[in-house]
């Protein structure tokens, strides 16, 4: 027997609910712990205000629910499994980034809006709502501007450009409102701490490397999804939810479907990261947003590796591939766990 099997033959709603509650609870615990440890230090510049903590917590819990397919109505079991795994990976990865101490509330809110906007554009007919959300995200954090690539790549020619223009207009509007209310300029959203500005190239490399360790679990699945999209035959795209969406007025999805557009978004972010390497340290979360959306497709790609009784080594390899993303979660999980322990024993 050489065919693959679904990991969960039956839908187990209890398991999903428990996993989601645990993920959301973990994020909330990390936010509380992070705020507690910040408040306990002498350097109050790192202190997280109540408002910031609420924004971060709510944004990431909402993003976890979004990615884990809570909005998915129906669909194949394999797609729901992929979404659940994406949600779990997001919650643990983001907990590591929160524990790292450099996530700001603006980025959290912008990230959630960008994720929601891209999800709406790619997988629902409500393109204009998606453009609105992406525009709002760009207004909060200019680093989200690369999400416009999703608007430009998916859909028919005229609708693509119109959607992107609408997002730009909304973004500029949000920017102006924020600046007038809070005084925060777009340039401020790209600033990093003085300590990061002072470090030399060799320590910057180490900083970026340690940051990459936190997001590796989602990046690996995203890269596998990208490879599946670009090197597999067209039949592979049937797993991509974008092709299931019936577009209004018979509009075709265009050359790029979900995974393709997200891969381009990720590639643009990679180029930005190379040019603005110091920005990764403070705002890297915004640069890996497309990876979170690609994680589900990557998990589905990994799950197509077969278990074969006539080839035990291949089965071992398939099992290893399924285990690897969770093994890589150890790094962000440990980082977050340390903060929780410090807050628990310090209180």
């Amino acid at each position: 027997m050489t065919g693959g099997r679904n990991e969960l033959h039956e839908d187990r709603p209890v398991l999903r609910v428990v996993a989601l509650l645990a993920s959301c609870g973990w994020i909330a615990a990390i936010v509380v712990a992070r705020r507690g440890t910040n408040l306990a230090t002498d350097d109050q510049s790192l202190a997280m205000s109540v408002a910031a903590a609420v924004v971060i917590g709510v944004s990431f819990v909402a993003a976890t629910l979004l990615l884990s397919g809570v909005l998915l109505a129906g669909g194949a079991a394999r797609r729901r499994d992929g979404a659940l795994v994406a949600g779990i990976l997001f919650s643990v990865t983001i907990s590591g980034l929160i524990a790292d101490g450099r996530l700001v509330a603006w980025d959290a809110a912008a990230g959630f809006l960008a994720l929601a906007g891209a999800t709406v554009v790619l997988w629902t007919p409500s393109r204009w709502i998606g453009a609105l959300l992406i525009g709002a995200a760009c207004g909060l954090a200019p680093l989200c501007a690369s999400a416009l690539s999703v608007l430009l790549l998916v859909g028919r020619g005229g609708h693509r450009i119109a959607g992107a223009l609408a997002a730009v207009v909304v973004g500029v509007g949000v920017c102006v409102v924020i600046q007038s209310v809070t005084g925060r300029t777009p340039g401020e959203s790209l600033t990093v701490g003085d300590d990061v500005m002072r470090i030399g190239p060799q320590n910057l490399w180490r900083f970026v490397a340690s940051w990459l360790d936190l997001v590796t679990p989602v990046l690996v699945l995203a890269l596998i999804a990208a490879a599946d999209r670009f090197f597999s035959p067209e039949a592979g795209d049937t797993d991509d939810a974008a092709s299931d969406v019936s577009q209004p007025d018979g509009i075709s999805p265009g050359r790029y479907t979900g995974a393709g557009a997200l891969t381009v978004w990720l590639a643009v972010n990679a180029a930005v990261a190379l040019l603005l390497s110091r920005a990764i340290v403070g705002h890297g979360f915004l640069l890996v947003l497309p990876a979170f959306l690609l994680a589900a497709a990557g998990w589905r790609a990994v799950c197509c590796l077969p278990f074969d009784r006539s080839d035990l080594t291949l089965s071992l390899f398939s099992a290893l591939c399924r285990a690897m993303p969770f093994a890589l979660l150890w790094v962000p999980f440990r980082k977050a766990g340390e903060i929780v322990l410090v807050a628990w024993y310090g209180s």
């Binding site: 490879a227 599946d228 990994v302 197509c304 591939c321 690897m324």
Partner: peptide, 18 residues
């Protein structure tokens, strides 16, 4: 299937690179 081959090689390569 070709997709299995692509996903298998990609998974091995990406996890190794990590």
């Amino acid at each position: 299937a070709r997709r299995v081959m692509v996903c298998g090689v990609a998974a091995a390569a990406v996890f190794s690179m990590a």
